Amino acid sequence: MTTTTPQESILDLATYLPETRVPADYFVQYAEDDALIDNVMFRAPEFRHHAADGETSADMMVTAAHVLTDRHGDDFFDDVDAVLTHSQLPEVPIRGCGGEVAHRLGLRPSTVLDVHNGGCVAFIHLIDLAGALLRANGGRRALIALAQNSAAQIFTQEQVRGKAQAAIPGDGAAVAVLTAETDSGSPILGLSCHSYGQYSGDMTGVTEPPRKYWEAGTGQLHIGFTEAKIAKVLARGNRMVPEAAIEVADSVGIAPADLDWLVTNQPNRIFLRNWREALELPEERHPDTFDECGNMFAVGIPVTLDTAISDGRIREGDVVMMAAFAHAGDFAGAAALRWAGRR
């Protein structure tokens, strides 16, 4: 467990959605006799975005980063001392794409860190890690970048696209710049992360016939869902996200029902409803992008946050609680942010 009172602020964030916008009908035409088709976990969004063929995590992250330089100037990344990235599906075995992202943006950071285990909590997790690095090393700014790139690559495979799970994910990317300068940006008021290692083996990638994911074979990789596993995930997720949000709200002295906004990951509509009801928040204070973007895993929180900022719902001075759980419940976290506007 880590519970911190951070000293960092987010200077700004930006996001990217691939051009290809895929309607639910795309998956209907391939639907097969899946025993999980009526499960609440797999009620499909209206749309999702798919990365183009050959479009990598680094490509999407760099495109999102260029939104920030277009907005603030080419020198916006000049003081970046650390680059932290998270890819849902690292394209290159062993390493991530942080070094490539830093190089393509012309950065010379002292630290490049690729973080693979944060799942849907990765935005919060990277804020926590970046803040710790800045405090420890005396750095000024950190760039955090995330990509969800498995929708087009995994869930449109011939053997996978007919399964109920295939219609839920969408692709996209997000970046944010964190600063150790306490007099600028939108301050992180409080943050908490919890690891639940006892659940870390409950979400698995499977093939038919079975094989290790790196072995050659005919089966195409997908998530090994069963009714029993889904029941466990629903129970854990329903509990973990409100618990994390309430913990952080208590630490900063705000009653959960008095939060201006709740922004969460978005696996499905049932979770979204249950989480806001647990925190006694009305639907209009819990924005989501599920019907446009589907489940974007780690990118869901920053995409929804950026959307609500850009369309004017989140205003200067508003307190935003970000909360999520990952995988089958092996990680959960929350962070409170006071939005200070875009300068």
Results as ranks from 00 to 15, higher is better:
residue 283 E to P: 00
residue 273 R to W: 11
residue 275 W to M: 05
residue 100 E to M: 14
residue 232 K to M: 14
residue 217 G to V: 08
residue 281 L to T: 09
residue 20 T to Y: 01
residue 235 A to Y: 08
residue 47 F to H: 15
residue 35 A to S: 12
residue 83 V to P: 00
residue 291 D to K: 12
residue 188 I to S: 02
residue 257 A to Q: 14
residue 242 P to W: 06
residue 83 V to I: 06
residue 329 G to E: 05
residue 96 G to C: 10
residue 111 T to D: 12
residue 291 D to P: 04
residue 161 R to S: 03
residue 58 A to T: 05
residue 151 A to S: 13
residue 6 P to L: 10
residue 35 A to I: 13
residue 161 R to I: 04
residue 76 F to A: 04
residue 154 I to A: 04
residue 144 I to H: 12
residue 212 K to H: 12
residue 95 R to A: 12
residue 86 H to R: 02
residue 331 F to S: 05
residue 300 G to L: 06
residue 160 V to M: 07
residue 100 E to T: 14
residue 75 D to K: 07
residue 329 G to V: 03
residue 45 P to Y: 07
residue 247 E to M: 14
residue 8 E to G: 11
residue 213 Y to Q: 02
residue 256 P to T: 13
residue 55 E to D: 10
residue 221 L to E: 01
residue 338 R to L: 01
residue 181 E to Q: 13
residue 193 C to Y: 01
residue 197 G to R: 07
residue 86 H to I: 03
residue 45 P to I: 09
residue 182 T to S: 15
residue 66 H to I: 07
residue 141 R to C: 07
residue 158 E to F: 01
residue 121 V to Q: 02
residue 332 A to N: 05
residue 110 S to M: 11
residue 21 R to D: 02
residue 146 L to D: 01
residue 12 D to Y: 09
residue 216 A to S: 10
residue 152 A to L: 03
residue 114 D to A: 12
residue 130 A to R: 09
residue 296 M to E: 04
residue 271 F to G: 10
residue 169 P to Q: 08
residue 154 I to N: 00
residue 7 Q to V: 10
residue 22 V to P: 00
residue 7 Q to H: 13
residue 13 L to Q: 04
residue 209 P to A: 15
residue 221 L to M: 13
residue 258 D to F: 08
residue 38 D to M: 02
residue 148 Q to K: 05
residue 262 L to H: 04
residue 326 A to D: 01
residue 140 R to W: 03
residue 282 P to L: 10
residue 236 R to S: 09
residue 196 Y to S: 03
residue 330 D to S: 15
residue 172 G to P: 00
residue 166 A to C: 06
residue 121 V to G: 02
residue 105 L to F: 12
residue 38 D to F: 01
residue 304 T to Q: 01
residue 122 A to W: 08
residue 327 H to F: 14
residue 33 D to T: 14
residue 311 D to A: 01
residue 47 F to L: 10
residue 196 Y to G: 09
residue 326 A to C: 09
residue 305 L to F: 09
residue 234 L to Q: 14
residue 324 A to C: 08
residue 36 L to G: 09
residue 228 A to L: 08
residue 248 V to R: 01
residue 71 R to T: 08
residue 120 C to G: 07
residue 176 A to R: 03
residue 72 H to K: 14
residue 117 N to I: 06
residue 42 F to E: 10
residue 141 R to S: 10
residue 318 D to T: 03
residue 295 N to M: 05
residue 4 T to W: 10
residue 284 E to P: 02
residue 294 G to C: 05
residue 202 D to V: 02
residue 273 R to S: 15
residue 89 L to W: 02
residue 145 A to T: 10
residue 84 L to Y: 13
residue 13 L to S: 13
residue 16 Y to F: 09
residue 27 F to A: 07
residue 47 F to K: 07
residue 269 R to K: 13
residue 123 F to S: 07
residue 284 E to Y: 04
residue 128 D to I: 08
residue 307 T to S: 12
residue 7 Q to F: 05
residue 329 G to I: 11
residue 71 R to C: 01
residue 151 A to M: 06
residue 280 E to Q: 14
residue 122 A to P: 11
residue 241 V to M: 11
residue 304 T to H: 00
residue 162 G to S: 06
residue 51 A to D: 04
residue 173 A to E: 02
residue 73 G to A: 11
residue 71 R to Y: 03
